[in-house]
Simulated assay, not measured.
Amino acid sequence: MFARFSGATALSLAALLLALGSGSANADAAADYPNRPVRVVVGYQAGGPTDVVARLLAKQLQATLGQPFVVENRPGAGSNIASDQVAGARADGYTLLFAAAPIASNGFVYKNLKWDVRKSFEPISQVMSAPAILAVSPTLPVHTLADLIALARKQPGKLSFASTGNGGTQHLAGEMLRQQAGINMIHVPYKGASSVITDLIAGNVSMAFMTSVSAMPYLKAGQVRPVAVTAAKRLALLPNVPTMAESGMAGLEVDSWSGLFAPTGTPRPIIEKLQQAVIKAVGTAEMRDSLQPQGAVLVGNTSSEFKAYIDKDVEHMARTFKTVKVTLD
């Protein structure tokens, strides 16, 4: 005897069987993942802070998961080239994005982006965060924020501030300083932190809001001069450098962060496998010893926690861009 099913019931059973088959396939894919090299795309120059962290992470992921995690630099357009490439990649876990804070703000700066940070990517895990440090060229005759503002007012349009791209954390911090202090400065965007450092040391740009990870070696060497930090309190590594609030610029607190993403649609078991591998990596002595002396705070959270962090950051950026005017140079 055979049971008879209505058309709707038959369709429901077919959908259930398809879902069960898909779930089984996803689990099998995760069990075998990765079985070949994985690309980790970075939207910044080699040698910059985001690239440095990405390479440290890739080394640990390779050790844990047994396949090469190959970092590929695709700098330009405020990291949008890399984001666009990964958003359009096959969602199989073999093309990942290691992104920094601008991924949450670029949607407010660039028009007609092909991707959306909350729709095009699956957050895997946040790796770190770091405060920004306002540093000036050693050729500039200033030692405090008050000195810097006074000089900018005496020479309107003559001083410049560098960033690693339009709409990023460093650009936003510079615009906030420019508008809150009522000074006229020129914004000079670069493709990465290494170019910023080179020109800041040479005096080709006056100042930059640099992440502590990129700035600390040059600060310790006396190649650039710290003026203030954007954290809520002074950094233990720079106890004599005041915060922006202590320097009379309340509200200018900026953190940079970085984390790992996959294209939307990547099987959940693969996301969870990568998430656990990132958490393990962040806990290693090599990552701690490499990054904490540079002022970094290591995170290593779950995919859902990272997603909540992204949502909060996007909402914060939406409020910020209503009051801070950022233009593409």
Rank of each mutant, 00 (worst) to 15 (best):
E72Q: 10
A231M: 00
L17A: 15
P217A: 05
A46M: 08
A82W: 06
L252D: 09
S256Y: 12
G107M: 06
V324E: 06
D32A: 15
P269S: 08
L17N: 11
S120L: 00
Q155K: 15
T327F: 15
R268A: 15
T243C: 08
M317L: 13
I81T: 14
R36Q: 14
A208Y: 05
A19T: 12
R225L: 14
A100G: 14
V70N: 13
I186P: 12
S137W: 02
L298T: 10
P75E: 01
V254G: 04
G47F: 01
G174C: 02
G78Q: 00
A14G: 15
I271Y: 07
I186V: 15
K273Y: 07
L13C: 02
V86D: 04
Y94W: 01
S105P: 09
K220I: 13
N112E: 14
N26S: 10
S290G: 09
I201E: 08
A99M: 10
D147H: 04
R55G: 13
M244T: 04
G251F: 06
V127Y: 10
L57C: 04
R90Q: 11
Q45I: 00
L172H: 05
V52C: 09
I271L: 07
K158A: 15
G251H: 08
A250G: 07
S214N: 01
R178N: 07
S105K: 02
I271Q: 03
I103F: 11
A318R: 11
G168R: 00
F261N: 07
A25F: 12
R178Q: 11
S79D: 14
A101V: 14
M244N: 03
D92E: 03
A87Y: 02
M317E: 15
H143F: 12
A101L: 13
A135D: 07
M210L: 09
E253Y: 11
P68I: 09
Q67C: 09
T327Q: 14
I133A: 07
S137M: 03
V224P: 06
P269C: 07
L238T: 00
I310S: 12
L235Y: 05
Q85V: 10
L328C: 11
P293H: 09
I81G: 12
A250R: 01
T144R: 04
A8D: 13
Q67V: 13
A15C: 13
G167F: 00
P49G: 14
F306L: 10
A19E: 12
G78L: 05
V278S: 10
L219E: 09
G167M: 04
L274R: 00
S256D: 14
V42A: 08
A135M: 01
R39P: 05
T230L: 11
A146P: 10
V227M: 02
R234P: 05
L274Q: 02
F209G: 02
V86A: 00
G88K: 06
A46E: 13
F98P: 13
N73I: 03
R319D: 15
V213S: 05
Y94Q: 04
A236P: 08
E253C: 10
D147N: 00
T243E: 05
